[in-house]
Computed example of a mutant assay.
Amino acid sequence: MTTGETNLNTLLKNMTPVLNDGDYVYCTTSSLSNINTDAIIAFFKEQEAVTLILKKETADRLNLEYSYIAAWITLTIHSSLEAPGLTAAFATALANENISCNVVAAYYHDHIFVAKKDAERAMLTLRKLAE
């Protein structure tokens, strides 16, 4: 199994952000028993509840509350979970543009959720960072 890229300069130069279609929301639930796990983008079990990231239409269909509608950006380079600095670099670049980001590091890629209204500016910022 490959472990991904660790060199920060290589990661930044080749991160190639892709804006996924759709609107995404963060919700909480006490149980996953009534939710088809195929519909879940990501979840994390916290002490208080299970946090879910879902397509907005899935949350609406399940009558789950949310207050934040996000766009989902995937950095397509296979980054190592041990690569230092990548999250700090793109989070700082986005913060400098007053764009909040919520990051999910998965095995192959980093995923960034930004407010829907900031999606295009975030993509521009990430592309500039890669230059």
Rank of each mutant, 00 (worst) to 15 (best):
M1Y: 11
M1E: 13
T3M: 13
T3V: 12
T3A: 06
N7W: 03
L11S: 02
L11D: 02
L12A: 06
L12W: 11
K13S: 13
N14A: 00
N14S: 02
T16H: 14
T16I: 00
V18R: 14
V18F: 05
L19R: 12
G22R: 04
G22L: 02
D23G: 03
Y24R: 07
C27E: 07
T28F: 09
T29M: 04
T29I: 10
S31F: 06
S31K: 09
L32A: 12
L32M: 11
L32E: 11
S33F: 05
N34C: 08
N34R: 11
I35L: 00
I35W: 00
N36H: 06
N36R: 09
T37A: 10
A39M: 10
K45S: 05
E46C: 06
E46R: 07
E48C: 06
A49E: 11
L52W: 01
L52S: 05
L52T: 09
I53A: 09
I53F: 12
K55Y: 03
K56W: 06
E57F: 00
T58W: 06
L62K: 03
L64I: 08
Y66L: 00
Y66V: 02
Y68C: 05
W72Q: 03
W72N: 02
W72V: 04
T74S: 15
T74C: 12
H78N: 04
E82T: 03
E82K: 12
E82Q: 10
G85S: 03
L86N: 10
L86E: 07
A88G: 13
A89G: 09
T92C: 14
T92F: 08
A95F: 07
N96T: 09
N98P: 05
V103N: 05
V103R: 03
V103A: 07
V104H: 03
A106K: 13
A106T: 09
Y107H: 13
H111E: 07
F113W: 11
V114W: 05
K116C: 07
K116G: 04
K117F: 04
D118S: 12
A119P: 06
E120Y: 08
R121P: 02
A122P: 10
L126M: 13
L126V: 10
R127A: 10
R127K: 15
R127Y: 13
R127V: 13
K128P: 03
E131A: 12
